[in-house]
Simulated scan of single mutants.
Amino acid sequence: MSDGLSLADHITLELRADIIGGRLLPGKALTEADLVLAYNASRNTIREALHRLGQEGLTRYVRHKGVMVRQPGADQVRDLFQVRRTLELQAIAASRPLREQQSDSMREAIEATQLARDREDWRAVGTHSLRFHQRIVGLLGSPLFDEFFTTVVAQLRLVFSAAPDESRFQAPWLARDRMIYQHLIENDRPAALEALSTYLDDSEQQLLEVFNPGSRH
Score class of each variant (00 low, 15 high):
R168I: 11
R117T: 12
L30E: 01
F169T: 04
K28V: 03
D202R: 13
E14C: 00
V36S: 11
S6C: 13
A38W: 05
I11W: 00
G141S: 08
P26N: 05
D79T: 05
H217A: 14
S203Q: 09
E32W: 10
I46L: 06
L156Y: 04
I180Q: 09
A8T: 05
F132P: 01
R52M: 01
L37S: 12
L24I: 02
Q71W: 01
R96E: 07
G27N: 07
H64S: 02
T150Y: 13
L89V: 06
D3A: 07
A124S: 15
R189L: 15
E100G: 03
R23F: 04
L25P: 03
D75A: 05
S167A: 11
E204W: 01
S105A: 07
R157C: 06
D201G: 07
M68I: 10
L184F: 07
P72N: 04
L98S: 00
T113H: 06
T150G: 14
L25I: 06
Q55S: 08
L98V: 01
L89C: 10
L58K: 01
A195N: 09
A38L: 10
D165M: 07
F169L: 07
P143Y: 04
L30I: 04
S103A: 12
L7Y: 10
P143T: 08
I92E: 11
D34Y: 13
L193C: 13
G141M: 11
Y199V: 02
L25M: 12
P213A: 05
R85A: 05
L156G: 01
I136K: 08
L140H: 10
R168E: 11
D75Y: 02
A175E: 13
L144N: 15
R84W: 09
A49W: 01
I19K: 03
A192N: 10
R131V: 09
N187C: 06
I20L: 05
L98F: 02
E147Y: 12
M179V: 11
